[in-house]
């Protein structure tokens, strides 16, 4: 018995602080959050009456919340599409033995080292919605001013102030910031493919397109999946960038569940805020859990 304890005891002791901390500050808080989401605590007045899943059904039926989910979908699609396209293109260009690869790699990766809050302040100015042909247009700043001064004035738009597509404008800074990271992932993927495989394909008379289609792309699939998971779950949780760009948290055009949760929380609607938190957790879990299962199975193999 004592020998067995000696075997796993020290390991357990060493891990205990982490287990306790994660247990309390992650899992216990998730459970507590779930409990609050089942109560009718909609004002600061303490009330612990359980209402079952009423908050969830009300939220899902609420047009404002549906709008925020729709915004989240647009954001995720544009964010994912943009980072994958730019990340892949840059990696593909740098994979060719090109001059100054190290320099460009650093240039593309650099935006990732800036925090969302800091870059958001700059992007707020860049994405200012005023256009030169509108009343007060002489105050136009940022991208709209830039477009106008290079003769592309017709491309000016109201960015995130557009009621339907505004949220896609929020994806622009996010793409700018994380494309370099996706590039690094793809570059590692490219480098992991042995040169012999390409040579063998070329000897067999493969065209360049077929080489990519049948040899390179299949081997990049795991990298692609990682990129989708990482960017996808970041997009679902995106809060700080929106908060930094949009001055008022309660701005309908760019409302996503994460910002709506904040607005509800500030308004002491703890039950709804907790329910939105749980819905977000489930959404992220839908993305991450299959991936974790996939990787653990791949590791066992």
């Amino acid at each position: 018995m004592l020998r067995r304890v000696k075997h796993w005891g020290p390991g357990l002791l060493l891990l205990a602080p982490t287990i306790i901390l994660v247990g309390v500050f992650v899992y216990w808080l998730i459970i507590e959050n779930f409990r609050v989401s089942l109560t009718n605590q909609h004002t600061a007045r303490p009330s612990d009456k359980y209402v079952g899943f009423e908050n969830y059904t009300n939220l899902l039926a609420d047009p404002n919340f549906q709008h925020s989910l729709w915004n989240l979908l647009i954001l995720t699609i544009v964010f994912l599409g943009g980072t994958l396209i730019f990340g892949f293109l840059w990696a593909w260009m740098l994979d060719k033995p090109a001059k100054g690869e190290g320099f460009f790699r650093a240039v593309y990766l650099f935006p990732m080292s800036v925090s969302f809050i800091a870059s958001g302040v700059v992007w707020r100015w860049l994405l200012s919605s005023l256009q030169t042909d509108q009343p007060g247009g002489e105050r136009t700043t940022g991208l709209n001013r830039l477009l106008d001064s290079v003769g592309l004035g017709f491309m000016q738009n109201d960015w995130w102030s557009n009621p339907t597509w505004g949220i896609a404008a929020i994806a622009v800074p996010a793409i700018w910031q994380l494309s370099g990271y996706v590039m690094a992932l793809f570059l590692a993927g490219f480098r992991g493919i042995p040169e012999e495989l390409r040579e063998a394909a070329r000897i067999d008379g493969c065209s360049e397109w077929k080489l990519y289609r049948h040899v390179i792309f299949p081997q990049l699939n795991p990298v692609m999946l990682s990129a989708v998971i990482i960017i996808g779950h970041m997009s679902l949780k995106l809060f700080d960038l929106i908060r930094a760009i949009v001055p008022d948290a309660n701005t309908y055009d760019v409302q996503v569940p994460a910002t709506m949760m904040w607005v509800k929380y500030i308004g002491s609607d703890y039950a709804d805020a907790a329910a939105i938190g749980m819905i977000l957790l489930v959404l992220v879990a839908l993305v991450v859990v299959p991936y974790l299962m996939y990787t653990s199975r791949a590791e066992k193999r």
Binding site: N162, P163, K264
Partner: peptide
């Protein structure tokens, strides 16, 4: 009005600014 009421009405006003 209490904060929760104000919040919901503000969301509606913000939405109105767009549509």
């Amino acid at each position: 009005v209490p904060v929760a009421w104000l919040n919901e009405l503000s969301t509606a006003v913000s939405k109105f600014g767009g549509d």
